[in-house]
């Protein structure tokens, strides 16, 4: 048996930090509202990953319970957000995030 390094909690947290940063860059760079939404999902997943890694590190199930709630809220958020995007894009096809600068329809 060869002794190899086991990934510690810090590795998982660093991976989550990288994933979060990629999601942030995506939100700032992309202009398609759907893709921006996907990048928000990436950021939520990064946070979930760090929650689960710390739950194992601390030996505490509450981290996993919190991730459960985050997933439910993320699902609700996606449903409402996509509803808004559908309502906007139905009126103006090919709208990007820049076209939604004013509140007035």
């Amino acid at each position: 048996m060869i002794a190899v390094a086991q990934p510690t909690t810090a590795w998982y947290l660093i991976l989550a930090a990288l994933l979060f940063s990629i999601g942030t860059v995506g939100v700032m760079v992309r202009r398609n509202p759907l893709v921006m939404f996907m990048c928000i999902e990436l950021m939520l997943n990064a946070v979930n990953l760090s929650f689960v890694a710390l739950a194992r590190d601390l030996g505490d199930i509450k981290g996993q319970t919190t991730v459960f709630f985050v997933m439910v809220v993320a699902a609700a958020e996606v449903v409402v957000g996509l509803g808004i995007i559908v309502a906007i894009l139905r009126r103006r096809p090919n709208a990007t995030a820049d076209d939604m600068a004013e509140l007035k329809g």
């Binding site: 909690t9 979060f20 739950a55 030996g59 199930i61």
Partner: peptide, 20 residues
């Protein structure tokens, strides 16, 4: 973020919960 994680790596107390 990575710097903070690396710096705080040893400060976290592990196994404070009831265990999985």
């Amino acid at each position: 973020l990575v710097t903070a994680i690396v710096q705080a790596r040893s400060a976290v107390q592990t196994g404070t919960g009831a265990g999985l």
